[in-house]
Amino acid sequence: MNNEAYTFALDNTIREIKNVCPEVTNIFIFEENAHTIAKDQNTDQYAINRTVDAFNAIKEKAETSDSFEALTIEGSEGRVNIAPINNFYLATVTSREADDKFVSSLTRILVPTVVKLVDQLHPADLRSNDTFMAAEEELVEEPLQEPMQEPSEYAYEKETLEEAEQVEHETSVVEEDSVGEVAESVNEVHVEDVEENGLVLPEPPVSQVIVESLGRFQLKSDTVRIDDSIISLWNELYGDRTILEVDLDALNGKTVRCKFSHIKDSKYQGKGVIQMPDKIQAALETCKGKLIEVKPVVE
């Protein structure tokens, strides 16, 4: 993952730590390779570089027969503590008046939490970005490669599980090869999204529903009918975002994207069922009474 995301989040965290605890005179976070991830405005880069060099020298010697955990340096006017936090090292300089236990508790809870949060946000963005790109590529490539093989009414059928796994494998290889570039673009998108919209769209919720037949002679053979409670949950989650289609995932790996509407028959309301035309059932290779997953396609 690119460090920009960490820098963005940890710079703010550091600022807040200093606000809460003014006795923290300097604070910075660095990597083992001496790259500075985040620092407060009071700390100059020269001091950081010298500290990291000295720290690395001690750490190297300390790891001869035992694993290194932390370095503390005490002076008459204050102290420096350097300790590993996740994959980084956090250095805090405090004045003599500081409550060391409070500072330690604050930093050792806050910083790992923020790092974990960034870790959780970004792989999700990376995955959804890759999936989106793969889906786009397929939409472009499929009609060119095999235009006549699929029946026109099942043209909305997507990849099988095997194909999805293959795409996932390929994207993971691409990830390893050019992880820096991909992560950087994802980070840019993420930061822009956060800055412009103030939020990141939640992952589409997956609902498990039981298949009910809609009948052989339905006019709209590409539309399923979904429970009102599920649709209202989506509306609550995504507000003004348009949801015109849903993705249906059968447990056999078959996936179909199609339109949806509300269940009209009151006897099926609130029963956790999805009414489905025979053609979509055939495409999913499922039937009445079988469990499938449904999730919204958010525009």
């Binding site: 001091a47 000295a54 001690i58 932390a70 503390t72 340096i73 005490e74 204050g78």
Partner: peptide
């Protein structure tokens, strides 16, 4: 080696961050 390195680094870092008179360096391991 560890003791010598810790003392030298401790004194240097102490000066860099104006910690006043160097008192001690503690290297914690597992």
């Amino acid at each position: 080696i560890l003791g010598s390195e810790a003392l030298e680094a401790g004194q240097e870092i102490s000066q860099l961050f104006n910690l006043g008179e160097f008192r001690c360096a503690i290297v914690e391991r597992k």
